[in-house]
Nucleic acid binder design. Structure first.
Lengths: 211, 211
DNA sequence: GGAGATTCTGGATGCCTGTTCAGGAAAGGC
DNA sequence: GCCTTTCCTGAACAGGCATCCAGAATCTCC
């Protein structure tokens, strides 16, 4: 059953279409539950049984909706991506001035670090797994690209509001923000309450320099 | 036996000292072997049996020299640090000009990416683990700090040779180099032969901007 | 060269893993 | 209401895991 989703030969209609929608909806529901467990335990320590236990289902169901563990994790990763790559777009689109954009960005950044710490440590974990397992590489590379684009949108809009252009490459821009975020995420998870303010300080100094 | 290493109350002398030295030497030997396996398989997929199989010993020995798996991995991580944290110091100390320093740094960077890819993916893996397990946090934080210092030494010497001072914070400087390295490491491991030259291009453009 | 400490072996144990599957429960169609 | 398809359960399986440990091998020292 699970492979019907892959079918591309013809576009299903009516009842069959409905059934497939239900199927993928449940897949997403399970992926969502899996993400929570993964965010809590990390890739290495998360088992299918554990995932099932934290959902409303038994572990057998996971093999009804997913061909195997990799299929599940891949689904999770893709689902995660859709949720987070537009995080700063609202701010970018509406901020009227350079300063407003900076402050809006900082606010969202702090909120992300505070409330999405689990998801982000999972992302760093999975990105590290991609260094070892080819199955993850394509998805991880694509997400990394999306995040790079996201950061670029913020910075180039910030530059635009100052009548300038970003002074560094996309890759370098993403690298520095990502690196700073990761560093302060670790500090934050180590209960260092200065992590968030100091991340904001870094970014506040940095953004005007690069854009 | 394994805990005698921890003993701090008095400084052992003579024969006892020799015995302890032998003990820690073997620990390091085993840690070295473990690092190779870890670099190949990653933290999540490395078992003690696998480590033992790639060394000259059986899995039982690992429990003679290490109290448990965490003890072993911690020992590995510390050992790893000592090896890589002075990588660029030779170049920094001897380069006569700004350009020579840049080119020497780039050369070493390319060499590292090419020949130490395994160790570095392990580092990124373990750093991600630290986001989940407190046992690793202290060591990982310390190594990160050492790497930050290492990058800072290069950049501030580079700035000095131009009669300048680095334009960004230590944290931001490390973040951007680390982020770029990680990105191109993934590309390199994905058999992208442009990974190394493009990393060098990035750094060549970046370093004069920040220092 | 022999006694005692140290080092190493490899089988045993019990737990956890992903996956399979027979069959029960629920839903859908008529 | 009944039959078929879909959905879900939980036991069973084979394999891998960290850890323990009895005893063999090796080394040390007198």
């Amino acid at each position: 059953m699970a492979d019907q989703v892959m079918e591309k030969a013809r576009v299903p209609r009516g009842a069959e279409r409905l059934r497939i929608d239900k199927f993928t909806a449940r897949r997403l529901e399970l992926a969502e539950a899996a993400l929570e467990t993964l965010a809590e335990l990390g890739y290495a320590r998360t088992s299918l049984r554990e995932i099932a236990q934290k959902s409303d289902f038994t572990h057998g169901v996971l093999h009804y909706y997913f061909t195997d563990k990799v299929d599940l994790i891949t689904c999770c990763v893709r689902h995660y991506k859709a949720k987070c790559v537009t995080r700063y777009d609202q701010v970018t689109a509406t901020a009227p001035t350079r300063d407003a954009l900076l402050e809006g960005f900082l606010l969202k950044l702090a909120e992300t670090l505070r409330e999405e710490a689990g998801m982000h440590r999972l992302w760093y974990d999975l990105r590290a797994q991609a260094l070892f397992e080819d199955v993850f590489r394509e998805d991880v590379t694509e997400i990394d690209k999306s995040l790079e684009d996201m950061v670029w949108r913020v910075a180039s809009r910030y530059a635009e509001l100052g009548g300038k252009e970003p002074a560094v490459s996309r890759a370098a821009l993403y690298a520095v923000f990502d690196g700073l975020f990761q560093k302060h995420l670790l500090r934050h998870l180590s209960n260092d309450e200065r992590a968030i303010p100091e991340l904001l300080d870094e970014v506040r100094r940095l953004l005007p320099m690069v854009a």
